[in-house]
Design a protein around this nucleic acid. Structure first.
Lengths: 259, 259
DNA sequence: CATTGTGAACTGTTTCACAGCG
DNA sequence: CGCTGTGAAACAGTTCACAATG
């Protein structure tokens, strides 16, 4: 899962919505949007919860933080809820986004449909490779890294997406922050350090796979007893046990791959 | 952040490592690997925690679930810890992975360096588009969806990655599960339903952006008093408020975009 | 004597179960 | 009557602070 820090300890003065709830609102919104398109007028907590993949008690508790938007004995008005959640998430306004690093991943993000909808708008694509400059990706011309500050400023961008190789991420991050960006979505496999007040969320493929591997391993060894739980190799083991001498630390995201 | 369910309620018989700890182990491992490459022999909880972006109390508590691998007054032996964490995560074995949906995103994943290292191996790339069949991506020939079951079976694949458009995801998921896969990493913006015992983690760009937007909005309205907290539009609002009549529900991930 | 390992306190999240209400 | 809204209980995760120890 991705993670984000840098919030006041959950007390936004009064109406503080728990972080766990905020993380689920987009899920509800998606399910509601689908219902809305099928012109379903109302939905019960049970139905909506199942569509969103959570249980109904949790959903009701979540909604209770937003206010009392349901009707007892009936359920929730779909359109109304869509509106309330959108507003709560700040999706009734326009969010220009800049994507830095237009490799396969950056291109995938730029082309991502869900990006354009729901208030997000790709304001600019930035890449350090001069040979990409001007080339259109998803209908938008790629601009050189030199333009970064200008682009952020001109478009009033407050959200940046980093899809560069790990090695460039911190540097790009610093420039984005200096340019005035206060929210970053980081796809590079690095811990970014940012000043107080800047929000970072990360999406890390490698971490997700490792978590899956952990559980997968558990499934396989379901009935294994103690094995070698007793005598594990003493302190510094003969190394080489897991030594990978080939590829880098945790690898990079591909930088570019045009044509 | 991505999410995963389907685990026994946190009691893997005896030595149960908390889910939150498991999610951080890959982070520690990455930091340790970097230290290992710089031939740093030992590290304190303080140093390692700062490299991993957590606080030292949390790190020590996390490690305490794995056993007592440190030395008081000194710190942790880097190589030894790398080994222990790798083993705990199941990275000392080989995990063949199949990626379904070779669009920009699938290609980005296939090319991802961190994928190949750390025990994961791309066993096959699958796409429904026949014109892609045989085309090499990241040095591996793309195979048609018809081959899915055979590929999973022949390679003993237990982890599948879904990078298809949302509309195809559940169907692909069903086939992967039927073929014997028990862990899925889902990049499509859909809730997948899977039988008991199958693990799903999702990575959802759109959700991450919406969470950022929520916090961004809070920052902007830091000193706004009550505004219209009082009289919100009664029940069914005039619709159209957030109505997007253009693009689909939440958009698709791009399917293919060769050349 | 610096640093780990860990009980105990605390904070956050989920679930339960039922009163309240349209 | 059915379904929401929510206190209260249960659980999970984090932080504190200090005793244990190489």
């Amino acid at each position: 899962m991705a993670t984000g820090r840098n919030h006041r300890p959950a007390t936004s003065r009064s109406r503080g919505i728990p972080e766990a709830t905020v993380a689920r609102l987009p899920l509800y919104l998606r399910a509601l949007t689908a219902l809305s398109e099928r012109s379903v007028p109302t939905v019960s907590s049970e139905e909506l919860a199942s569509a969103a993949g959570v249980n109904s008690a949790k959903l009701r508790k979540d909604f209770s933080y937003l206010g009392s938007y349901g009707t007892r004995g009936v359920g929730y008005d779909v359109e109304y809820l869509v509106y309330q959640i959108s507003r709560e998430l700040g999706l009734t306004q326009d969010w220009p986004v800049v994507i830095v690093g237009i490799g396969n991943l950056g291109a995938a993000l730029a082309n991502y449909g869900g990006f354009a909808s729901r208030g997000f708008r790709v304001a600019a694509l930035i890449d350090a490779d001069p040979s990409l400059s001007g080339k259109p990706v998803a209908g938008i011309g790629v601009q050189h890294t030199d333009e970064l500050e200008k682009v952020v400023d001109d478009n009033g961008v407050s959200i940046g997406v980093i899809a560069t190789p790990a090695g460039a991420a911190q540097q790009v991050c610093d420039r984005l922050v200096a340019a005035g960006i206060t929210s970053i979505l980081n796809f590079a496999p690095t811990v970014l350090s940012v000043p107080e007040g800047v929000d970072v969320r990360k999406v890390d493929l490698s971490i997700e796979l490792q978590i899956l591997a952990f559980h997968e391993q558990r499934k396989a060894g379901e009935d294994v007893p103690a094995e070698e739980d007793t005598a594990p190799p003493a302190a510094p083991p003969a190394a080489s046990v897991t030594k990978r001498t080939d590829s880098g630390p945790d690898g990079d995201l591909p930088a570019v791959m045009p044509a």
